[in-house]
Simulated scan of single mutants.
Amino acid sequence: MITSTTGLYLTAFLVGLLGGVHCLSMCGGLVGSLTAGLDPRIRRDPWRMAPYQLLYNLARIAGYATAGALFGGLGALLLQLDAFQIMQRALYALAGVVMILLGLYLGGWWRLIAVVERAGAHLWRRIEPFGRRLLPVRTPLQAAALGYLWAWIPCGLVYSVLITAVSTGHPLDGALVMLAFGAGTLPNLLGIGLLAGAAARIAERVWVRQVAGLLVIGFGVHALWSLFG
């Protein structure tokens, strides 16, 4: 089991980075909507477009941190229970299983994780209309608001790391775990916005998705081995 907070942050970052091909498929259209709503003169100039993309992604990561703080707070409540150690181990085990399922999904071998994503669809249906009102994006503030809202889109990758955030047993640690995860996703999603379809075309290659899937499966297997090995 990962016992240091540094280990948790590193794992969350690497899961975000390696699972970035999933981010491209889940959020690529959303980032494309952001880009399409900008003034054509801004779209043609990557340097002028960069602040919008950066604000969008920083706000998205802030949304992840908010969720991490909430789930870390839930862990703090569970810490008050006599059986917290058992609960903590169970949460680590669940996170490991979800990562394995996520890796299978990324590699295109099994799509069971899609069921987990659909579980968050009820919340997203309540949030998504607010995002639509911000389109088309005309100002940096709109880009930031849109990014924060879209942090709550149903995503098995996010859910697997949120389970780890619960196991920290502290709101601040939970927020930092999700910040590390969000930082890992940043290169891929900035690549969509600034490099148009180039990043998406790379992510569509079967071998890229399969390598990412195998590596994420490795994280899940390691987590379970640390617990039961």
Score class of each variant (00 low, 15 high):
R111G: 15
V161A: 00
R89Y: 13
R133N: 05
I127P: 02
V158R: 02
V115N: 09
M26I: 14
R132L: 10
A119D: 04
Y52S: 04
G213A: 00
G108P: 12
F181G: 11
A90M: 15
W152Q: 02
V98G: 04
L106T: 11
H22R: 05
L179V: 14
G156T: 03
A69E: 03
G37C: 10
P129H: 04
I217T: 04
I113D: 12
S160I: 02
R209L: 04
Y159W: 13
Q85G: 14
D39E: 10
I86Y: 13
W152M: 12
R60P: 07
M49V: 13
L135V: 05
L74E: 07
A59Q: 02
T185S: 14
P129N: 10
L17Y: 14
G16C: 12
Q88H: 15
T11V: 11
D45F: 11
R201N: 09
L58D: 06
A95G: 13
A143P: 02
G63E: 08
A196D: 11
E128W: 00
A198P: 03
S25V: 14
L55F: 07
G37F: 02
R205I: 03
I202R: 10
L74N: 05
A93P: 08
L91Y: 09
F84M: 12
Y159A: 11
F228I: 11
A143Q: 01
L94F: 15
I2L: 11
W225C: 11
V115W: 15
R89P: 05
G120E: 06
W124A: 00
T185R: 07
G68V: 02
I127N: 00
A144F: 10
V15C: 05
L162F: 03
G120I: 15
L172R: 00
V115R: 15
S167R: 12
Y9R: 04
G213L: 02
